[in-house]
Amino acid sequence: PKGLGLEMVEKHPLQNRWALWFFKNDKSKTWQANLHLITKFDTVEDFWGLYHHIQPASKLTPGCDYCLFKDGIEPMWEDDQNKRGGRWLVTLAKQQRHTDLDHFWLETLLCLIGESFEQFSGDVCGAVLNVRAKGDKIAVWTCEADNRDGVTHIGRVYKERLGLTQKVTIGYQAHTDTASKSHNLTKNKFVV
């Protein structure tokens, strides 16, 4: 309403509180020392305030990551809520940093905070963006790789939200497989 200060407008609460993490690769430090919690938020308004305050994905230095995880889940395989899970992985070609990366990452964030996966939204742990010289990656992490129904539903909805065509497939990899094999040999547990 006209004349009403923004501070008086009730914010829209999210189903979950989310934590945004930033990883900056410094080879003189351990992996965990390079991982920083930026902030947490639990309303639509605070999400946008944060989103417009930080660098777009495409402007990050290669080697950096953004991670968005539910409060209480750390963005690493070892976390109790991640260790039996896996990730839907979207691998981008180099040129897609300029055409698709920011759009894909924003859609990923909106899927998470909006709880877009119906009854399976509870399976979602978070999402990870890796900016890399050889090609950027975005992944949605879920809690239980053996939950076929939940994992495949999340994959189908996610693929549709990214606007990927039927010709494109994305794969789901269990973290235990990713951790034990070299990257290129990790098999897909599911594909959509």
Binding site: L6, H12, P13, L14, Q15, V44, E45, F47, W48, G49, Y51, H52, E107, L110, C111, I113, G114, E115, S116, S121, R161
Partner: peptide
Amino acid sequence: EKKRYDREFLLGFQFIFASM
């Protein structure tokens, strides 16, 4: 009640609160 928001709803708040 679960709080679910579709993308259009979320996007609708993007610029209203961008300067907060």
